[in-house]
Design a protein around this nucleic acid. Sequence first.
DNA 1: TATGAATGAGGGTTCATTCAT
DNA 2: CATGAATGAACCCTCATTCAT
Lengths: 202, 202, 202, 202
Amino acid sequence: MALDTRERVRRAAVKLFAAKGFHGTGIRDLAQESKLSTASLYHYMGSKEELLADIMRDCLRTLLDSATAEVTGVPDPVERLRKLVKLHVRAHARKPRETRIVDHEIHVLTPAARRSVVALRDAYESLWADAVADGVACGAFTTAHPGVTRIALLEMCNGVARWYSPRGSLPLDELAAHYADVALRALGACPQGSAERQSKGE
Amino acid sequence: MALDTRERVRRAAVKLFAAKGFHGTGIRDLAQESKLSTASLYHYMGSKEELLADIMRDCLRTLLDSATAEVTGVPDPVERLRKLVKLHVRAHARKPRETRIVDHEIHVLTPAARRSVVALRDAYESLWADAVADGVACGAFTTAHPGVTRIALLEMCNGVARWYSPRGSLPLDELAAHYADVALRALGACPQGSAERQSKGE
Amino acid sequence: MALDTRERVRRAAVKLFAAKGFHGTGIRDLAQESKLSTASLYHYMGSKEELLADIMRDCLRTLLDSATAEVTGVPDPVERLRKLVKLHVRAHARKPRETRIVDHEIHVLTPAARRSVVALRDAYESLWADAVADGVACGAFTTAHPGVTRIALLEMCNGVARWYSPRGSLPLDELAAHYADVALRALGACPQGSAERQSKGE
Amino acid sequence: MALDTRERVRRAAVKLFAAKGFHGTGIRDLAQESKLSTASLYHYMGSKEELLADIMRDCLRTLLDSATAEVTGVPDPVERLRKLVKLHVRAHARKPRETRIVDHEIHVLTPAARRSVVALRDAYESLWADAVADGVACGAFTTAHPGVTRIALLEMCNGVARWYSPRGSLPLDELAAHYADVALRALGACPQGSAERQSKGE
DNA sequence: TATGAATGAGGGTTCATTCAT
DNA sequence: CATGAATGAACCCTCATTCAT
């Protein structure tokens, strides 16, 4: 039925856009991967670019919504940042292709589509910015350049999508916790009894 | 003379590949940006893909050579890593387009070309790996997962190429020093008298 | 009921074929204008081309039938031609889109369909030819080249479909009468007491 | 050399657009008729539509220029109109395909291109309008509806492009003269010693 | 050195039509 | 009666590349 097919197209696009890039993926590649003719493809998408924009927006909206849910009502900025980092790492490890597409293909979007995507990304990043700012304000974080550090950490976490494999030795939850520790260290939060030290058995 | 023209082509390619991606850049774009006809372009390059591979290899070779020079004969792993991070950040801030191309377009390359590029990248990254391993071995670094941390830090530093602007408020040297501090904190090196604390006036 | 829908499809086709041409009109356009799905369209027409041929034949048959009725039993060739011109002008003014389609899209038709359309057109034009020939034979028309004049007048009258608007200042009956006068002048019939002179107040 | 090829493409387009319509002519048809590949076609034209617009503009400009030259400095409106009709008929008989394209395919053009074509057509038609108006003003023409008559005559003359064949019995010059006589009769100009009567031997 | 001309292959998209439901 | 789904063929146009001059 229609929904399944639409989903098949979506997945084909995610796979190929992530592997070969948007411009490196032809409509015929998408059709083959979706097991559809090129003409049929157009029953399930507006255009190649709209398909891309949809993928990006869905990915970012999911991330934004779950991050907002995770963080709402958490007063401690340290705890908030820890949650954000963990969620971010998990999301990027579980959906590496979607997130890589978001990271790499923004430049192909039409200005209008780009605006909508960037708006979502900015909304998400502001959750990080708030946590960092609050932590600095209350003295929990001691970093000379909070803005730079925030973006550095974001890039670090984005990187997970580029290398993580579920076949690695480190369970995902531990990986996420490790990233959170690295982030808090980077921000100069005194790690009292963090998972990091625990995992070292101290 | 020929060399100048060749350089013009190279720079056009760097500009366009970074801005629109390899597949998003046509030879007509390259010709226009180089102020050459498309046919003339082929006096100065083998093919579009060879041009890309050349750019990538040159970028990586330069990075590898200068990193090797910087690090050779430095016994202290902390100091070595600090130098590596600073160099990396500076290189990515100064040549953001080349380094972004290296990061984003590897999937485009033919297996043969990809191998040569990946070999250079691996050689470079092994300098980081050695420093981290030495630091862990001598107890200077206290991180539960050195391998993961190393790759996390590399991704963090690569990110500089995606956002750094010389018009930012932070001088590049300070930025590089800040990144080095973040990296050492992340690795759990006790930062004694680091630039970070100095810049906070302590 | 089905008949209404069929008529809706017909009218959509007339509108669009006249405005954008047969090849410029897609079945999706037809479906949209008919408020039907493209698939449903095929319940009311054989194919796009058959729809076109039907429109043409209906238009020509109506013209032929009413002209035949108008002219039968009128012995005076001058009067006959006057009636033919008036009818022709009125028909083209009232159904400009159908007649434009007949004029412009014959080349689209398959040979078989074209033959049936051309046969109707020829039958109609022979009414004109007979009137002109009779008029020349009895001395009522004094034109050096009756055949050429006939076709020239036909083209002139066809043109009405290309510019007439009911919002123009001249009532349609007067317009038709004027065309009849022009035609008779062109044929060299001494206009005695024609509408033309009357309208000039003489 | 380039000029020849460009001209070959032009002629192929004129032939095919006239025979099958703009939308009925594919780029592959043009290529085949031009003995070029579809890709090579684009060395000699901007796009299919630009090719069409160029053909239309050239046709109209030629007509406008020669009509202007013909008519300038001719004070007698009767003589002016005779010259205009003759020129128009000759032009449409000699370039029937170009003029049919102008007449039939204007609706295809983009608004911008259409404006430029319509402007030329209007400039040309104003030569006719001036002659008619002058003739009416000085009493040389006695028609109840000069505007309508003018457009009727134009359509009549345009029709030449739809049926004239050089293999017909009437020499082109005589045909043109005949049309001029028909036109002047239609306008109610007393034909004194016109070609029409001469050809009848009176 | 430089480029106009040329092209086979492929780009994304729409075509008119059919058919199972 | 009506339509979503499906498609092979074709749409216009651009691709990276070669070669004669």
